[in-house]
Amino acid sequence: MDSNLAHIHLLLNHFPTIGFAIGFILLVIGTIVKNEEIKHASLVILFLIALIAIPTYLSGPAALDKICERVSGQVVCPPGLSLTLIQEHEDWALFAFSVMEVTGFIAWLGLWQMRRTPKLGTANLAAVLLLGAISFGLMAVAANKGGDIRHPEIQSEQAIQMAKDGTRVPIARAIGNFVIAKTWVWPTCESLHFVGLSLLFVAVLFVNLRVLGIGKSLAFSSVYQFLPLGLIGFGVNLVTGMMFFLASPQQYIHNVEFHRKIVFVLLCGVNVLYFMLFDKAWRVKAGEDAPISSKVAAAISIYLWIGVLYYGEMLPFLGNSF
C-alpha cells in the first residue's frame, strides 16, 4: 500500500503545478477579454486543483518512507538521495499547499456568488489572482525542490553541514512537535474538529434535506445561502486535521481508513459542485418538489459525509491511529 501511495504522490504532484497553472492562466485570459464564462471555468479548475492538492501533500511522507528508511526514529536516506533537499521540498510544499487551499476557498466563494449574480466580484477576482500567483510561485519552487531530491550534488555546503549537525528542523516537523509537546493542543484541535463538523452539517443538512423534501416552502436558492458555512466548517477541519497529520504522519499514511476518508472528502468536494454548477436544483422554487436527479445527488451527499465521519471515527479502531 505504501509503495502505491508513493506512486500516487508522483502521479498527483503534477496536478497542483500544471493544473493550477492552466486554471490560473484561464482566469487571467478571462479577466483580459472580460469573459465571465472563462472566469467561471477557471474557478472550477482552481477549486478542484485545491482539492487534489490535499492527497498530493498527504502522500508526501509515504513517498519519503518508500525511498528512505527509519532507523530508531531517524530518517536515513541511501546514497544519491539528500534528506536536506527532501526536507526543503516538504517545507515549500507546505507553504504552497497552505496558500493553495486559501486560493481554492476564495475561488469556491466566487463560484458560489456567481450562481446568484453572473459577474464575478472585483474583490474576489483580485484575491484569487493575487493568491493564485503566490500559490503557483510557491508550488513551482516546491516542485523544483522535489525534482532535485535525486541530485544531492547541488546542495549548498551550509545545508550539508546543517544536516550533519541535525540542526535543521523542517517546518512540518516543528508544527508536529508543537502539537505533541503541548498536551492541550491535541484535545483543543479535536474539540474544534467537532465544532467544524457541526458547522459543516448546517450546510449538509439544510441543503440536502430541503432537496429531499423537508421544509419545502423554502426555495432552493434560499438554503443555498447556507453553503459557505459548510465550507468554513470544512476549513476549520482541514486546519485542525492537518495538525493531527503533522503531529504523527506515520499513523495516517499507513492507515487505510485514513486513505478512504480522504477519498470520501474529495468526492464530497465534487458532489457540492453539482448544486453549484447545474441548474436543476437551483430552479426549485418555494413549495416545489426537487427533481429526482437532485434528490439522488442530495442522498449521495449525505451518504458521503456519513462515510467521512465513519472512516474518521474508525481511525483508531480499525486502523493504527490513537
Binding site: 463538523l197 457541526s198 458547522l199 459543516l200 452539517f201 448546517v202 449538509v204 443538512l205 439544510f206 447556507f226 458555512l229 465521519l309
Partner: peptide, 9 residues
C-alpha cells in the same frame, strides 16, 4: 452533527 447543525443553522 444533526442536533448542533440544525440548532446552529
Amino acid at each position: 452533527g444533526i442536533v448542533a447543525g440544525i440548532s446552529g443553522g
